[in-house]
Each structure stands twice: as C-alpha cells, then as structure tokens.
Nucleic acid binder design. Sequence first.
DNA 1: TGTTAGCACTCTCTTCTAGTGAGTGCTAAC
DNA 2: GTTAGCACTCACTAGAAGAGAGTGCTAACA
Lengths: 348, 348
Amino acid sequence: MLNRRKIKILEAIINDYIASAEPIGSRTIAKKYDLGVSSATIRNEMSDLEEMGYIVAPHASSGRVPSDKGYRLYVDEVMPQKQLSRQQREYLKQSIAQNLSQIDHMMRDVARAISFVTKYTTVAADVLAQRHKIKHIQLVPVDVDALAMMLITDLRAVKNSVIMMPEGAAINYAAAARISTEMTRLLSGATADDLDSLYIGMTKQRLREVNVNPNIADPIFDAICTALSSADNVQIHTSGVKNILDFPEFADLDKARAIVGALEEKEGLITLFADNSDNIQIIIGDENENIMLKNCSVIKAKIRVNEHFSGNIAIIGPTRMDYSQVMSVLSTILGNVTLDMADTGRMG
Amino acid sequence: MLNRRKIKILEAIINDYIASAEPIGSRTIAKKYDLGVSSATIRNEMSDLEEMGYIVAPHASSGRVPSDKGYRLYVDEVMPQKQLSRQQREYLKQSIAQNLSQIDHMMRDVARAISFVTKYTTVAADVLAQRHKIKHIQLVPVDVDALAMMLITDLRAVKNSVIMMPEGAAINYAAAARISTEMTRLLSGATADDLDSLYIGMTKQRLREVNVNPNIADPIFDAICTALSSADNVQIHTSGVKNILDFPEFADLDKARAIVGALEEKEGLITLFADNSDNIQIIIGDENENIMLKNCSVIKAKIRVNEHFSGNIAIIGPTRMDYSQVMSVLSTILGNVTLDMADTGRMG
DNA sequence: TGTTAGCACTCTCTTCTAGTGAGTGCTAAC
DNA sequence: GTTAGCACTCACTAGAAGAGAGTGCTAACA
C-alpha cells in the first residue's frame, strides 16, 4: 500500500523530526535526502501520507510531523537496528556487573544507567513471578528487649526486622533458637494471605502447647505479616526526571509540571507494568492508558534475573524518541542480565 | 534600630509577598493594613527599609520585595507562632504512627506527609550517629547453593543478603550454625574500616584452623563487607518535587529544570545534612551553600528516633516560603516522634 | 519635625500592527 | 508521472502605543 518512495519520505521525516523537533517541509527533504525527485513531487507524496494519517501538519502551511500512526509503522516495519558505541556498551555492562549482588539496588542502578545513556526518563520496578511462601524463620536476640528476625521465603527473598519485646521477656539465644524452630515448623509454606486471623489463632494455640507465651508470640507474628506483605510489594525507582524536561515537548510549564507530577505518583507508574509480557513493548503516544503519558512514548521490557525474580523497566520520552537507540540499549541489558546473571539473584 | 512602625511595614510586605509573590507598593499597605498613616509616609519608611537592605525593588518604579536579610530579621525576631489545623495535626500524627515499625520507610513516609501538608518539597535522610560494629552473624541455608546471611550491628541495624556458594559446597543447617558462631566470635566489634585485607587475612587463617574452607569463607566475607558499608550509607528520599514547580518563582523553564535536577542529585542533597545540629535551622536564599538552592530557603530538622538512629529532614521552598507554617509542622512532628517513638527504632 | 497631598517620571506589561519566512496547494507545462 | 511557478496561509518577531502601578520629590500642613 505504501510504495518504496513514500516509506523513504516517512523515514526521512521521522529521522529529521527525532533530531530537530521541528516540522519538516518538502524542500528540506528534497535537499537533505537524495531521493532524485523535486520538492514538488515530495509535496505530492506528503499530501498522500497526510491523507493516510501517517503524518500531520500542525497548522495549515507548516511542514509535517509524524503522527502516532506514523511512528507505529516506523517501529513495526521500517526502523533499523542501531549499534551502540563501544563505550555505551561497556558502561551498561559495568553498571549491571557492579550490582549483581543485590536485586533491589540492581533495578535502581540499571534505571540510572539507562537514563544516563539514553537521556530519557527511566522507571524500574522489582517484580515477583509468584507470591512468597515462608521457608525459614530465624530469631536472634539483639538486646534485652529486642529480637532480630530473619524471614526467608521459597523465592529466596530474605526480609528482616527488629521486634520489640515486652518488658521482662529476656529471651536468650537458646530460647530464640527454639522459637525459631517451632515457628518455622508451624508456618512453613504460608503466604501473606494465609496469615489471617484464623491461621494465627490456630498456630498460637499450638505454640502455647509447646510453652511459647502469647506475649512473645504476638509481636513476632506481627513482624512476620509485615515482612511477608512487604516482600510482595512492588518497589518503584524513577531516574532521570530532569532529562525529559530538556525536550522542547515539555518546554511548556503546564506540561512540565504534569509530567513531573506523573513521574512522582507510584500508583500511576505501577500500572505501566500491569501486563507482564516477556517481549519488549513499544507504546506510542495516545496508545498509553495513563492520561499523563498521552504525549509520551514508553518502551518497556522485562528483565528476567532468575526463575523467581524479574524486574520491569520502562523508558519514557517524547513520542519522537529515538526508538532505535532505546531498543539497542534494552537488548544490550537484557542480553547481559540473562547471560551473566542466570540464577545469581539475591534480594534484600 | 528599627522602630515599631518599620517592623510592622516589613511584616506586612513579607506576609503579602508570601501570599502573592508580587512586589508590594506603599498604597497597598496603606489600604490593607491599618497603620494609621498615609501611603506617602509608608513610602518614606520603605525608602529607609530599602536603604538598610531589608527590602529591594526589582526595578526602579516597582513595589518592594523582601530581601534575604529581611527574611532573616523576620524569622529571627518577628515571625509569629502559627497553629496547625486539627486536621493537619491528625494527619501528621497518623502518618508517623503508621510507620513506627520501620525506620527507613518512616523517613520516606514522613517526607511524603510533610510535602503533602506544606506543599513544599521535602528531602529526608536516614542518618546514623556512629559507625556500625558487627554484633552477630547468622547464616542459614536457603538452597543447595545459597546461604542467607543476617548481620546484626551494635546499632541494632539488621542487614541481610543471599550468598551464592561454590558448587558442591552443600552446607547444611548445622554447618551454617557452626560457621555463624565462629564468624561472630572472630569479627564481633569490627567496623567496615576494620575489614581491610589484613584483618580478613588473619581471620581467614583462624577459620582455617577450625576447618572452614576458604572457598566458603570468601564469599561470606564479601557479603559482610557489602552489608556493613551499605549500613553506613545514607539513604535519601525526595518527595513533592512537583510542588515546587507550582510556585511562580520556578515558572521559568531553566529554573524549573535546575531545581528538578538538583533534587535528583543525591550527592548534592547529602551535603544539606552535613552539619548535624539538633536544632531546627532556617537557611535563607543566598545563605545556602548549594548553588542550585541560592534562590530557595531550606528548613532543616533532625528527628531523633532513639539513642542510635536519627533522621534528617529538609523542607525546600522559594525564599518567600511560609516559614511560620513549616516551623509548626516540624514542631508537631518532632514532638510526636520523640514522645511516642522513644526507643522503638527498627531498621531494615 | 513628622505627615500628607500632588504630580511628574519610570518601568513593566499588554495589545496591536506590520513584516518576514517557511511551507503548502494548485495549475500548467514538460 | 514530474516539475516549475505562483498565490496564499500561518507562525513568529520586532516595534510602537497605551495602560497601570508605583516611586521620588516638593511643598504645604499640624
């Protein structure tokens, strides 16, 4: 339906517009890109492209700007594979390698690295494939009135907290070890949902049978509940907010405020990752469900760290963002994580 | 040096300017504030105030605006004690009460609450009074090839990580417990600085004597080093960045970009808390050391949670910020934390 | 001596009016 | 199918004019 020349022209318009953010005229294309035809011919073709909805004119006698539909065609069919510079690749590799050890910091730092390389804004989230189940509970006294708890889940997450004990409880190492063993035995396999009041009541009953005082058991249960549900929570890290303000698209104060506000709202950002597809996804302008992002494009990817953990990454820029570059950055990162990090996931 | 009437006029200018962000003229003051004199008299007084440096005229024939020196006099001597509304007080109390349990989330959520109430930007940091010393190390197997480590410090911080073991290490619960005991005995009392190569060499030697293989000890040491230094690290939480963009002071795009950039740079924000004073501090405009904040004011306070932990809070707004309101908010929070939270600090 | 009314002057901000330039659409010729 | 040419449109800019707010100064007043 689109002949070769029309595609060439559309590509020229998109490339120019990505670089300049200015509407492109027929004469500019004729001069800059060697298509072997005059500006008048290009004018005719552009008129067709506009009629088909791939480009739009901001006003009657201006040059043309790619439409969302135009970008969509471009990313789906036309876009070339861009190579990253050696430096960029090295930088990305290193920023991942440095953070192999802690998955939560890893997502934050990868987000930072991506914003730095792409000059767009990056949102990252730690995400779990399934819900955590209690695997092991370890209690250690830290003070006369406090116990440290380490809770390990089947997904290898480790959560800890310090639990304040009622006065005079004075739990020693041996007692703490005994309670740990009992609790692990009773609660092993439970998820956050299981720990409702009924479950707790039953377990408490059984603990009493082995001489564990409810005064001591209660605060420990509370801590377990908190730890389990926070393990299920999604953490969001935003990086490079300033970057997006540097684009002329956001040179309007209201827009600048709106985007900064949107990027501060975790609730809205979480919905970015609602569908948990494994492929890299490109969402262009109006395709975004989040109203604040209607004049942005988002490129999303899921980073699989191991069989249990994965992180989500979204790179947000103006609709004229450099899709090709971002795709390369993402491929580089995905390649490195899945290769180097297979099964070395840790979690804090 | 300043007679009563001059102070009244200065106060009127500051109050009006805080509300309107517009230069104030003599006629406005004569009409709005009942000083019993005409605009001409006020004009003379304002001329004096300008000569003394308390107010400035943005241009030759405009009204006057308070200078940094004017704000300084105001906050030091004139500013009234403002009462918060019942709702605001309740809101603040609750947002603290909900987060009694986790000190790191507490600082983040308190920052959020403050930005919400004041409509300024809030930066919060978890801060330690001293360096952590190892108190207890607990290792628990989580998988054939992984150990979970819980590291407890004398400051009651608990840090954990999952340590990958070399293939075939196959450490069982008993072995893990034995290594835990040995490690705790050898490293108890050490700080991050102590764990240099020499120290590690010596300890490793002694571990070998009790039959702990270096293949196993090495990754554990690495994890201990990482955990200890991350415990010493300061965490920074920024909240309400959008708020500051709503002020006309930042209606200029370059300024908006600059402040958003400054608020994203943890390195610069940390210096805000360099001096660790116990009092609430007000830093006005040019008094700020951070160049990006020269046209902002910062109100800082230290939240003491218990004898070991404290948090720092900085509220950032335009120099014409409502100092009185912010002081009230801070007093409310400080009052609640020290009263309700005494010695219930926990750390993740 | 302190206060006030009056007036000229200054400076910003807004509105209006060309003028310029980039770009299109259409037509007629190649 | 392609091209040259031309009239037309529209955004953007600079300059001019006018309005409005506010000052500083002077002279009169209590």
